[in-house]
Each structure stands twice: as C-alpha cells, then as structure tokens.
Amino acid sequence: MSRILTFAQAISEGMAQEMERDDRVFLMGEDVGRYGGIFGTDVGLYDKFGPDRVIDTPISESAFIGAGTGAAMEGLRPIVELMFVDFFGVAMDQIFNQMAKNTYMSGGRNSVPMVLRTAIGGGYGDAAQHSQILYSLFAHVPGIKVVVPSTPYDAKGLMISAIRDDNPVMFFEHKLLAGLDWLPFGVKGEVPEESYTVPIGKAEIKRTGKDLTIVTASLMVHRALAAAEKLSSEGIEAEIIDLRSLVPLDKETILTSVAKTHRLLIVDEDYLSYGMSGEIAAVVAEEGLYDLEAPVKRLAVPDVPIPFSHPMEDFVLPNEKKIAAAAKDLLKA
C-alpha cells in the first residue's frame, strides 16, 4: 500500500522503520527531538522512541559528529543530523579525517556504519551561510558515500539503504523539497508503507529523450523536468538523469545516455568550479568523448557565494528558464 507523503515525511518514516527494526539505530542532532527537526524531517520520532534514541544535542557539531563516528566504530548505527550543510566547517576534521578515513587507515579493520544527514540548498533568501549545496566537497574526499535524493520515494528507500550500509553515508536533503509552509516549492509523492530500499550508486532516468542528456540531482531534477516539458513543446526531447548518488557514481547510466543523445548538459546547484559538474564532464571526456557531437555544457552557480537579495540570488541559481536556454544553446552547437 502506498500513499502520498512529503519529502520530509518520507525521510522520517525511513528512519522510524529502521529504528523499529534495529535497536542499534539512534538519531542525534540539534533540535531533532522536541522540535522534530527544523525542516520537519524528524517529526514523530521523539514521541515514538523517546529522548534516549532521539537525542537533542548541544550546539557542538565537532563533538557530536565525532561521537557518531566513535559510536559507529563500537557497533552502533548512529544517524547524525547536521542542521545545514553550511555548518560542516565547524566539524570538518571529524568528517574528513575521522569519519571518512578510519576504515581505510585501519586496513579495513574498523567500520563506520553511520549516516550523516544534512539540509542543503538556496532559493529562499537565506544568503551565503545557509544556502549552499557543497555535496561535491564531501564526494571529493575518499571514504564517504554521498546520497542526494530528489523524491519522497527515493528519500525513504535511500535512507533505509544508508542506515543499513556498513560505511559512512552522507545524506543531502534539499530544503525546498521538504514541503514546509515557510519554504517555497516542496515535493509530495507516492511512498509505500512497507520498508524497501533504493540502491546507493544507481542513477535513474527520469525522462527519456533523444536530443540531449541532462545530468542533475536533487531540486534541480524538478527544475530540469519542468524545462524539459517546455523544450518538448518546441520539439526538443531531453533525457533527464537523476544521479541520486554521487559516490559511488553511476557512470554507466550517464555514458549510455550520452551515447544515445550525443549531447550533454550538466545542471548543478553547487558552485561551478571543481565540483560535480566538472566531475561528470571529466567522466564523459575520458570514457565517452567520441559519442559527443558538441562540447559539454555546464550550468551551475558561477563561483560566487549565494547573495541575499533576490534579483542577485535568482541570477546565480540555475532555474527552469536557464536550463531550457542552455539546452537550446547546446543543440545549436
């Protein structure tokens, strides 16, 4: 049986089902308890599992993210919530040098079965320190699996996979997908009541098309789908790939699509340089160059922090219109 849930509800349900199934699983982070998570992703968990398993932490990210790693190495399965990805800097060492590397440095003798969840994204005027995406930073560091769902169905299934994974998984939740009153947009969708998994490392083709491939993730999947409808009315058929995971990266789905469409547009809400868009372009350059009939095109934030005022914020963030325009440019090339 499935019903319609918001993205936030799907995440909460995924965590709840795993907490019921496995008593090693617990949640800790800022305002995850009585508040239910600032983005509504933890609603109901505190009432169901109590303060012992749904733990409100002090504002001490370095300590509680590190504690997640330590507890995971002792065999528990912590879910740790970093309220906004922008705050990762406070705990950078614990994430990059401890959580990510304790498996490798121990020659595989330690494992860190932990999920580090975090909210990402802009588009609602929250400015430079509360609007970033940054998933590429974490994907860059070996030892962290990186998951970026775009729908309630994937959010629940990937959450369950992430909790069951024996490795550290970072789980990126776009705020505009959450479905909260005080934030724009929000997605709802069919989610089965029962437990299920969505595999980490498998992209999904959201729309088939013959004229170009658009590779993207998270909120931008929805923006790209909207752009594709517009393009379709003008006779252009875009194939849209939702990466869903950045690490491991599903190269095969990307390369197969590019071999069919011969044109590639990458849409990324992260900064342009040294990030996801560059990585996908490099993969296609290395392994699919001869399939291309035009240079790869990238649409991303033009290497500036996210500005507060909306004319400027709109200018830097990719959107439906810019995606459609970039697609048309690519077809002219």
Binding site: A128, Q129, S309
Partner: peptide, 15 residues
C-alpha cells in the same frame, strides 16, 4: 535587500 543597504544587498538580516 536593496542596493543602498549596508552590504549592497549581499548580506541580509544575518550578515
């Protein structure tokens, strides 16, 4: 978020 603001609209309420 206006041009005439302390930070030309780049910072906003928190910055």
């Amino acid at each position: 978020g206006r041009e005439t603001g302390l930070c030309k609209g780049k910072g906003g309420h928190m910055h």
